[in-house]
């Protein structure tokens, strides 16, 4: 009996020694003990697969096709993403002049959306206040970051800001591929609100609030 116990204990120690505890860090891919239908013969996004010529599962739409989409509700009615309209391009239709004001109705909800998106995509460099004092400035890793309260940007047409976000400018990268059109206009609306918060004076307040301040 003693020997049986000893053998058993040795085996337990060996298994434990080799397999270790739950949760230990391992470089080896997980073993699927009962693989069954875990991995199916289907394409999953962003995977390598030789079904398409370029060996990716995620493909760009073929040239000339238009993605199924819903229209964007603008001040001048619904606009589809393929239309040549200010909301899609930042230009006044048929010209190369920037549209002066936001084509989307500026509502509290849009400003809130703009704030959220601004804080995701813009604050790392431009800072939460838009003054160009983001974390990159604090670490001194970027030579120049625009201060969004600069008169040059305050006076800029909304369409030009849209164009800058979409295609980038100087060292700033293009955010068109990652930030959808509505979010870009929401960011612009929020940037305008930020600018107002710096440019405003007590004279902008309604009389009763102004009296309360004094």
């Amino acid at each position: 009996m003693r020997y049986v116990l000893l053998i058993l204990l040795t085996m337990v120690a060996v298994v434990f020694g080799i397999a270790g505890l739950r949760g230990h860090l391992s470089r080896k891919p997980p073993v699927e003990i009962i693989p069954d239908m875990n991995r199916q013969f289907k394409l999953r996004p962003e995977a390598a697969d030789n079904f398409f010529a370029n060996d990716h599962t995620s493909q760009l739409p073929p040239p000339g096709t238009i993605p199924r989409s819903r229209p964007i509700q603008t001040l001048s009615g619904p606009v589809y993403p393929y239309e040549d309209a200010p909301v899609n391009t930042g230009f006044i239709t048929g010209t190369t002049n920037f549209v002066a004001t936001n084509p989307l109705p500026v509502t509290p909800a849009l400003l809130q959306q703009g704030r959220e998106q601004f804080e995701i995509f813009c604050t790392p460099c431009h800072g939460a206040l838009g003054d160009g004092n983001g974390i990159t400035k604090k670490l001194g890793v970027m030579p120049s970051v625009a201060n969004l309260h600069d008169p040059r940007i305050v006076d800029m047409a909304d369409g030009e800001i849209f164009n800058t976000i979409t295609h980038g400018k100087n060292l700033m990268g293009a955010y068109g591929p990652t930030v959808p059109v509505q979010d870009r206009w929401a960011i612009i609306a929020y940037v305008r609100a930020l600018q107002l918060s710096w440019l405003g004076s007590t004279n902008d307040l309604p009389p009763d609030l102004r009296a309360a301040l004094k």
Binding site: V4, L8, M11, V12, A19, G23, L25, R27, I33
Partner: peptide
Amino acid sequence: AGLALAGGAVTAGVTYYFTPKYSRVGYEPI
């Protein structure tokens, strides 16, 4: 008694190891 011990050890081992709590948790590829 021997079978019970061996069976118990195998059951305990399978319960502890044959689960994603062991096989997946801690996966840290390079």
